[in-house]
Design a protein around this nucleic acid. Structure first.
Length: 755
DNA sequence: GCAAGGTC
């Protein structure tokens, strides 16, 4: 019997469908832990395909390091004593694997065709062979659990097939004879099409253990760095428990991008400039023109030109129209889809969730991919024929389906992991919310990649007013091409000028100058940030949206476009201050670039995992020593940052600071805490001495509260902005004064509704 | 209570 192990259930099912005639599905376990296996006949033998759920092993520290203490950090760096063990959450999967592996004579590793897929394949072999550790070898065996005891987490649902008793052997019991595992076969496919899967099985190979080691080194380094620096920062700043300060190879450089941009904005000095604009008419035609020079750097130069442009009429001196081709966009990979969705108001984290549901419902292909080139094996026509049944794009899809050949666009990234994201089905019921938006986007992008370029006529008219040159630009869609379905930019591209010819005369309706200032660089939106991360190699297709979400959850950033909190700024600037003498790349993206380079060398057999991890430990040791010499500074910066994040503005009564505090029940409220350095007032009997004038206000209990820096026009108390978690929803601006007259209308409305 | 990477 052949045992085929894939990385996910959908791949196991698809492979069974392609290779087998009749497929029998068996279910193992219950509820969320349910695992399916697919049984079929293949080449005169039985076969079973089963999907793991991603990684089934993980890197862990021994329990001796469980306690958070600064005195362990040196040991954690120098002798991390990491072990590679079975992931506790994978118990259900492994029980199912054990049950279907029984009697297998051949093992086929069919995990994803990328670096992590290779490691997952290696994990499966370790477990099947009985080499995998159940727990860290230096940890004591866990005590037997009482039968029927309620245990939280995934492990609880493990069926009894995996013996719960610890017989002292730290290894998982072998599922197959070593010989059968050793002569395993590795198949590699980049799309789950008949053509590719059959070709993969016809050209078997073996697991690339060097490539798997490369991924394994990343796990080790990420854990050591993450654990040591997270503990150091948290302990340095006295932020324990739920408020810990996380640090990581990917999250910290990502935070740095946001913080650096904010610091640039703060350092920005605006430069004034002027523009001259005019409105011209001819009958019903209106033309808005601007001085041909664009920006005037000096007021004098602008005024001179303005004086020379005094006239009642304007004359067209030239008119040019040039067609240019606008190429259709490349197929969607994860980043491009996230970015496009973000532009349409769906955050990357939400878009990813919606895409996941669409994929599980058979509407789009696998949503985690780097690829932007359709593999030739893809059934483009099949998708088009299906889309011909989806009303919003039916005519375009039907027309394309009849076409003989396709020359789809190609992006720069061509990878082996999965095909680009494209529609594979049509919804039976109408979709709603994020899913509707993401599906619509995927469908339109797909059709766009198969449609011809758009032809846009760019227009420019030169006009003289008085003695000065002016101009206006316009554009006209000459041939819509892909814009037929991908109209995102079409509106902007169809702003034609009226028909004008040299010598035409127009009336000057208005001539005015505008005084402006150069603008600081703008904050990152979630879409552009995810693109920047991809460009720098930070995170992966599957993790970038989560990493950004994590920065929100840790209160390092807020709002959208993304703004760092003072805590986020303090964390990054504290690092930098400590690293001044001897910079170590601990919070920069170059650290990842270097790791990538070393992983490539491991996969080529030039370096070993332990060498790369050892080098990384040396680097961390240097960084830690520098940080350790700056504990007090780091503490002060972070405390200051947090205090600033909680300070809403000035108290109208006494000029003190209004700050967010938490009550005994955990509810937050705003209170005047007095001026900086103010002495606490003598306390009444049985009460604590307090600073400030005693003024308090209730606050909304949900969302992130940020001061706007302004005061309310009606009541004079500080104004705040409340934004949902993760930058979701529309920000709500209000003043802290609950009795402010500006709230009358709102209150009247809600009262009526509640009544 | 730590990371990032898979997947649900």
């Amino acid at each position: 019997m052949r045992l085929i192990v894939t990385e996910k259930d959908s791949a196991a099912r698809k492979i069974a469908d392609i290779l087998g005639g009749k497929v029998t599905v068996k279910e193992h376990g219950r509820g969320r832990q349910k695992v399916r296996s697919y049984h079929f006949g293949y080449k005169d033998d039985d076969a079973v395909a089963i999907g793991l759920r991603g990684h089934v092993m993980e890197t862990v520290f021994p329990n001796t390091y469980r306690r958070w203490s600064l005195k362990y950090l040196g040991d954690m760096i120098e002798t991390p004593d990491l072990a590679w063990v079975v992931d506790g959450g994978a118990a259900g999967t492994l029980a199912a694997l054990r049950s279907v592996a029984k009697g297998a004579t051949e093992v086929v590793i069919a995990t994803d065709y990328d670096r992590e897929g290779e490691l997952i394949g290696h994990e499966a072999l370790e477990i099947l062979r009985g080499d995998a550790l159940k727990r860290h070898p230096h940890d004591k065996p866990e005590k037997k659990k009482k039968a029927g005891a309620a245990v939280r987490g995934k492990a609880a649902a493990a069926p009894p097939a995996e013996p719960p008793a610890d017989d002292g052997d730290p290894r998982v019991k072998a599922m197959l004879p070593a010989a059968a595992v050793d002569r395993h076969i590795r198949v590699r496919y980049s799309a789950l099409t008949r053509e590719e899967v059959e070709a993969a099985f016809a050209k078997p190979s073996t697991v690339d253990f060097n490539l798997a080691e490369a991924a394994h080194s990343r796990q080790d380094i990420d854990l050591i760095w993450g654990a040591v620096l997270t503990r150091f920062m948290s302990l340095a700043a006295y932020r324990y428990g739920a408020d810990y300060l996380s640090v990581g190879r990917v999250q910290s450089p990502t935070l740095r991008l946001v913080v650096d941009r904010e610091l640039e904005r703060r350092a920005f000095v605006p430069v004034p400039y002027w523009e001259i604009k005019a409105t011209l008419t001819r009958g019903d035609d209106i033309v808005e023109v601007a001085h041909a020079k664009g920006r005037f750097d000096s007021l004098e130069a602008m005024e001179t030109a303005f004086a020379r442009a005094q006239a009642d009429t304007a004359e067209v001196t030239a008119y040019k129209a040039e067609p240019r081709k606008v190429a259709p966009p490349a197929p969607f990979n994860t980043t491009a889809l996230m970015s496009a969705a973000s532009g349409g108001g769906v955050s990357p984290a939400r878009a990813m969730r919606a895409a996941e549901s669409l994929y599980l419902n058979g509407l789009i292909s696998y949503p985690r991919t780097d690829n932007t080139v359709y593999p030739p094996s893809l059934d483009l026509r099949g998708s088009l024929e299906a889309l011909a049944g989806w009303r919003p794009v039916a005519t375009t899809a039907a027309r394309l389906a009849k076409q003989g050949r396709y020359t789809p666009t190609r992006g720069k990234k061509r990878t082996t992991d999965h095909p680009p994201i494209y529609p594979v089905g049509v919804p039976k019921k109408e979709l709603s919310g994020d899913q509707a938006r993401v599906y619509d986007l995927v469908v339109r992008r797909f059709l766009a990649t198969l449609l011809p370029a758009a032809v846009i006529e760019g227009q420019r008219v030169d006009i003289r007013i008085g003695h000065e040159p002016f101009l206006a630009r316009g554009s006209r869609v000459a041939s819509p091409g892909f814009l037929e379905v991908y109209e995102k930019f079409a509106a902007k591209r169809d702003r034609p000028l009226p028909a004008l010819r040299p010598g035409d005369v127009l009336q000057v309706r208005d001539l005015h100058s505008e005084s402006k200032e150069t603008q600081p660089p703008s904050r990152y939106g979630q879409g552009p940030l995810i693109e920047k991360m991809e460009e720098l190699g930070l995170g992966t297709k599957a993790t970038r949206a989560d990493i950004i979400q994590h920065l929100y959850d840790r209160n390092y950033v807020r709002d959208n476009p993304i703004e760092p909190t003072e805590l986020g700024v303090a964390l990054i600037t504290a690092f930098d201050a400590a690293m001044k003498q001897a910079p170590v790349d601990i919070s920069s993206w170059q650290m990842t670039a270097k790791l990538d380079d070393q992983m490539d060398r491991i996969s080529e057999g030039e370096l070993r995992r332990d060498e790369v991890v050892a080098e990384s430990q040396d680097m961390l040791e240097q960084a830690w020593k520098l940080l350790d010499g700056h504990v007090a500074d780091i503490r002060e910066r972070i405390k200051g940052g947090v205090r600033e994040d909680l300070t809403l503005g000035e108290c109208k009564n006494c000029g003190g600071q209004v700050r967010v505090l938490r009550g005994k029940t955990g509810k937050r409220f705003a209170a005047c805490v007095g001026k900086e350095g103010e002495e606490p007032k003598p306390a009444a009997e049985g009460e604590r001495a307090r600073r400030g004038c005693g003024q308090t206000f209730p606050l909304p209990q949900r969302g992130t509260i940020t001061p706007t820096g302004k005061t309310c026009g009606e009541c004079g108390w500080p104004e705040i902005k409340v934004v949902g978690a993760g930058g979701r929803g529309r920000p709500w601006v209000l003043c802290v004064d609950i009795d402010c007259p500006s709230k009358e209308k709102y209150r009247a409305r809600t009262k009526k509704r509640d009544a």
